[in-house]
Write a protein that binds this DNA or RNA. Structure first.
Lengths: 145, 145
DNA sequence: ACTTGACCTTGCCATCATGGTAAGGTTCAG
DNA sequence: CTGAACCTTACCATGATGGCAAGGTCAAGT
């Protein structure tokens, strides 16, 4: 009963930032968004972070790395904390995000394909003639309506 | 000599918006960025747009649709107007943008692939157990450094 | 004890392209 | 003369992040 290692750590925001991979600035921002409930303070006003807080920050970091928005992450954190959650509700959020990613990927691929084609057509030399500019300047793209 | 159709049009900003597919709001914004040189005004202060202005707006619209940033578009418009441009300089901008798109696409595909895998592993039922949350909460993702 | 550097605090501004809103002037049709 | 549909400018919001400024605190070295 002498050692309770994980409980009394009390890290500063800088240490919390290093341990979670989130910048100190963003740690404060996430707090203002209500993602970190009730941040403890020392007498001097410094924030102090428990292992549980660090874990939450790592959760947020991982979620951001997967492209979730702060709103989605807010919901995911709530579900994570809620023992009566359903995996269906988590899956729904993830699926919606994946769908959004797919749409954005497809839109960007279409841009890239068009660009690749135009780039391929362009000599890229000292002359001014340029199929890329011709495409951009072509009135053919204006929606008729 | 009676008809000179393309020269004397003098469109309002609303008409210019319709003809170019750019919102009136953005037309003003592009002007403030210096993309539309010297916008003529009527006596009452209304902006008036020539066919040349419309063409520029269509050029900008097409460039935006291909994902170019306003900074890039600013350069592209300059090159477009410059008879002494080289196609190489245009190609360079387009290639840099395409490269950027590719990086972003790859990053998003990686997110999507991870998500797709996790979603596939999740039952999506009434129980709380969820591989998606387990992944997000896993400390395995924290860069050891 | 004092200085120095590294940390912490809050608050404001900037990004990027776009939309919204407000408050007011103009034009045109009924 | 009135109302709708336009135009004007100016300000605020988005979303996630970075930067800077001005000030308080702490710990280590002199």
């Amino acid at each position: 009963m002498a050692d309770v290692p994980a409980a009394a750590a009390a890290l500063t925001i800088g240490e919390a930032a290093k341990r979670s991979g989130v910048s100190a600035k963003m740690v404060r921002h996430y707090e203002s968004l209500g993602l970190l409930p009730a941040v403890a303070r020392r007498l001097n006003g410094y924030r102090q972070y428990s292992e549980r807080d660090i874990h939450t920050l790592q959760f947020i970091k991982r979620s951001r790395d997967l492209g979730f928005s702060m709103l989605e992450i807010s919901e995911l954190v709530s579900l994570w904390r809620n023992r009566r959650r359903t995996s269906a509700s988590v899956k729904r959020i993830a699926q919606a995000h994946a769908d959004g990613l797919n749409k954005r990927i497809e839109a960007m691929q279409e841009m890239r394909n068009t660009l690749t084609h135009l780039i391929h057509c362009c000599h890229g030399d000292q002359r001014p003639d340029c199929p890329i500019l011709e495409d951009l300047a072509s009135p053919a793209h204006v929606k008729s309506h």
